[in-house]
Design a protein around this nucleic acid. Structure first.
Lengths: 112, 112
DNA sequence: TGCCGCTGTGTCGCAGGAAGATATATGATT
DNA sequence: AATCATATATCTTCCTGCGACACAGCGGCA
């Protein structure tokens, strides 16, 4: 069997939310999205390529983000993503959902 | 294809934490654990049998909880679970992990 | 020119968990 | 006995995060 990382599956269920929110601030290309998430979370969330690109394709397929081939400052070919109107609505919905989860977990953890 | 529920996958990654915490308060049998989680979260988390029992077996296999066949107040045969010492340590670790996730997500959601 | 090395994108297969459907056992009820 | 309700268990499917890898394009450098 393949050696499994002992690092927990931290992103489970939050990746879409994180990507949508990151793109809400400004359009970015794939790797730059992952890089920003890593920086803002101070290394807690490190989005791997095997997670990042399937997620981007999924979000694009749902029409929550739109990708366009461009070139970055170093003249390299990159795919830049922007949040769509539907994406903004989805982001709002996922924010509410996340708040609900956090509240519910807190209730369990704090109710003695 | 099988009709998929449009209800979000809320439990994703939090089920172990919820079960361990519930058993920290007092020993309970499977269905009673799910029932308490449902009540405390006011219906946000409804743990289905297909999630509950595999989770209990998993936690028992990790020796974080210990099951014992007993009978409940209605004289019915139930499997009562108690949190082990290792389970308490695991619960503490998962609490820290959860806090870390909540903090990280908040950083992404609130960093403008 | 040819060879690296780096960056960005993409893909493949696996592992593990959540859930619906279903099965089984057992006690209570009629 | 038949039925119903409760509790446990399992089977299968779907989803998703991930490691490993492939590959393309560009710059540097001998």
């Amino acid at each position: 069997m393949r050696p499994r990382s002992d690092k927990a599956d931290l992103l489970r269920g939050t990746l879409d939310l994180l990507v949508l929110r990151t793109l809400e601030l400004r359009p970015l290309h794939g790797v730059a999205i992952a890089e920003r998430i890593r920086q803002v979370t101070e290394g807690t969330f490190v989005v791997q390529p095997g997670s990042l690109f399937p997620a981007l394709h999924r979000l694009e397929h749902e029409a929550w983000i739109a990708g366009k081939w461009t070139t970055n400052a170093e003249k390299r070919r990159v795919k830049s993503y922007v949040l769509t109107a539907a994406g903004r609505r989805q982001l709002a919905a996922q924010r509410r959902e996340w708040d609900r989860i956090v509240t519910a977990v807190a209730q369990v953890l704090e109710t003695g």
